[in-house]
Simulated scan of single mutants.
Amino acid sequence: MYVFADGDKNGVETDPQKDDPNEDWCAVCMDGGEVVVCCDKCPKVFHQMCHIPKLAAIPDENETWQCLLCTNLKEIIDAPPTSPVESRGQGLCSKDQKVAERLLLELYCQYEPSLHFREIVGPEVKEYYSVIKKPMALDVVRRKLDPVDPEHYSTIREFIADIRLIFRNAYIFNPKESQVFQDAKSLEEFFDSLLEKWLPAYAYDVEAGSDDDSLDNQPHRKYRRILSE
């Protein structure tokens, strides 16, 4: 495991002539500044606070460290149910917590398509709030995944519903030909492909209803609606 910043690895200047298997930029924020931690199983690097879950401490340079993207999620999913992680109330079991963290990290690592959906639209965009009544963003989902957050998810269904809400809001507010709409569609298709592998019961499998006016602008495809009205 390497920890480095701005061309420096383990306190030693790197040789530009040598092949470096690791990427230059944090996989989440695409910034190379400050200290980044290199995964020992893939080329990705992460800032301590960018990785999901955030790293409690920078690993020792002699430790072997792998990012959550390299974790064998099937082993986690196939494991027996576990008790909820420590939180202020009833929360996700450890297995669901890990699956949700993996799904969210995968979305963040789709850097360009996810950029529009990381932060809540600012209140100064009054037109947005006249149309969208329940704003949602990846950063909010990440906060609610923290076991100590007062709004920590109680079920994996709640987590997936918030992710769906991000895409639904994008479809409602943005024209179909817009880049935001297309990025939402691409990112949701990617999200569904992950659900098919790890949580198939929550992947798309039902035709989107046309009786709800707020859904008219959504792309024509099949998916499982778990949003609460």
Rank of each mutant, 00 (worst) to 15 (best):
L73R: 01
I58S: 04
K41R: 14
E101G: 05
F46A: 06
I120E: 10
V36S: 07
Y204F: 12
V28T: 15
P113T: 04
D211C: 05
Y2K: 11
F173G: 02
P81C: 10
Q182V: 04
K185T: 15
Q218D: 11
Q179G: 02
P200M: 12
R225S: 12
G209M: 12
L73W: 03
W65D: 01
Q182H: 03
A79G: 14
V148N: 08
L105F: 12
K41D: 13
K44R: 15
D96L: 04
G7M: 06
Q182Y: 02
L68G: 01
Q179C: 01
R143G: 03
D192Q: 15
A201Q: 13
V12S: 07
S214F: 02
F46M: 08
S154T: 14
A170V: 12
P53N: 09
L115R: 14
D211V: 08
M49C: 09
A56M: 10
G122R: 11
E158K: 01
C70Y: 08
K197R: 15
Q110D: 04
L55P: 03
F191M: 15
Y2C: 04
S228V: 14
D192G: 08
P80V: 02
K133C: 10
L199C: 14
P81G: 06
N10K: 05
A161Y: 00
G89I: 03
L195H: 07
K134Q: 13
R143H: 13
V35Y: 06
L107S: 03
L165N: 13
E101L: 05
R142H: 09
P80G: 05
Q90H: 10
Y171H: 12
R157N: 10
L68V: 10
Y2S: 05
E112I: 11
L69A: 09
N174K: 06
K18W: 01
I172Y: 07
D6F: 04
E189A: 09
F167E: 06
V3R: 09
G7R: 05
I156H: 01
S83L: 15
M136W: 01
R143V: 04
A56P: 00
Y129P: 00
D8P: 00
K126Y: 06
F190H: 15
K98V: 01
M30H: 14
I76W: 06
R143D: 15
P147R: 05
A27N: 10
I163R: 03
L165A: 05
S154K: 14
V141H: 08
T14Q: 15
E61L: 06
E127Y: 02
S87C: 11
C29A: 12
D15L: 09
R164W: 04
A79W: 09
V36Y: 01
A5M: 07
Y111R: 05
Q179H: 07
C93G: 02
L145F: 07
Q66W: 00
V141P: 08
G11M: 12
L194D: 06
L69Q: 11
R118K: 11
H152D: 00
P53I: 06
K74S: 09
K126P: 00
V206Q: 13
E112T: 06
D205N: 15
Q218F: 13
V36P: 00
L194P: 03
I163N: 05
E75A: 14
Y128G: 04
G7H: 04
L73A: 00
H51G: 05
